[in-house]
């Protein structure tokens, strides 16, 4: 009996993520890490882990794992069915597994990303201080594949049964606050343009950025066709490429960008964006 989880199914995309590797942007290394940070932190607390332990981020569920030894897992994020050996158990609660038990996630009815934490955390080798998979740079472990055997650490604390943690239900309309700048002056009355627009989440969105569809943002007089020298960008930055359609940078974003950033979504609102399905309507409030 060894402390491992064996991957039996991955769903569309399953990645190992912790809280990422901020502090390396000056080397061209993105922060990476879980997109819905509060959900990973909660899963870790429920499994008795420090909040920064590595867990699994699943796009649209479908993950199935076999436990190599007894352990506790917890699944968070949007509401999703969780089964152990074919029997329904609770999400958003500690679930005990014995050796050879199989835990399987269904497909969430709303939202995008569910998180699974295991007592002791997943202990693949860290790179630049983090176990996170960075899809832009190829740093960290490869996306999970059937047959992978994931090492699991020793549990450090008892599972925490928090009473009644209701799963969030991602809405089909999101109003997201924006702090204007650093390049809002490149756009004609940026605050008013943003406030008036309703965007739709593009299916091309990924961990690098949430791409938004809608009427292009108009440049201010004198800024049409102008090029920006590349400059550092933060997670949550709303970059506006030449086509005028914003991209909200998420955890695997490039560290510098050559298009103007009209505003920044504060960190605490990024989890909601990480759960926005294609077609979700979004208002950016400047």
């Amino acid at each position: 009996m060894s402390r491992v989880l064996t991957v039996l199914a991955t769903g569309p995309l399953a990645l190992i993520e912790d809280l990422g590797r901020p502090g390396h942007a000056h080397l061209g290394v993105p922060p990476s890490g879980a997109l819905d940070v509060p959900s990973l932190r909660l899963a870790n607390r429920l499994a008795g882990n420090p909040e920064d332990a590595a867990g699994i981020e699943c796009v649209l569920g479908g993950l199935s794992l076999r436990a190599g030894s007894s352990c506790t897992v917890a699944v968070t994020g949007p509401s999703v069915s969780v089964q152990v050996n074919g029997r329904l158990v609770d999400s958003h609660a500690p679930v005990h597994l014995r050796a050879d038990d199989v835990v399987a996630l269904g497909t969430p009815l709303s939202g995008v990303r569910t998180y699974l934490a295991v007592s002791g955390g997943i202990t693949v080798s860290p790179q630049l201080g983090s176990r996170s998979t960075d899809l832009l740079s190829g740093i960290g472990p490869a996306p999970l594949a059937v047959g992978d055997v994931l090492p699991v650490g020793d549990p450090v604390g008892p599972p925490v049964g928090e009473d009644a943690v209701p799963p969030p239900s991602p809405p089909d309309f999101l109003a997201v606050p924006v702090v204007l700048g650093p390049r809002d002056d490149w756009f004609a009355d940026a605050g008013a343009q943003l406030a008036a627009a309703v965007w739709s989440v593009s299916p091309e969105s990924n961990r690098v950025g949430l791409r938004l569809l809608g009427d292009p943002l108009r440049r201010a007089p004198g800024f049409e066709g102008r090029e920006l020298t590349s400059e550092g960008v933060v997670t949550g930055a709303i970059q506006v490429p030449a086509n005028g359609r914003p991209v909200v940078f998420l955890a695997d974003h490039p560290t510098t960008g050559g298009y103007p950033v009209v505003g920044v979504v504060p960190e605490r609102h990024l989890a909601a964006l990480a759960q926005a399905r294609p077609g979700t309507r979004i208002r950016l409030r400047g």
Partner: peptide, 17 residues
Amino acid sequence: LVELVPAARTVLVSFEP
């Protein structure tokens, strides 16, 4: 301080919330 990112004409400096 979290990030200190020089570029051609800018330095981005970011901090813990």
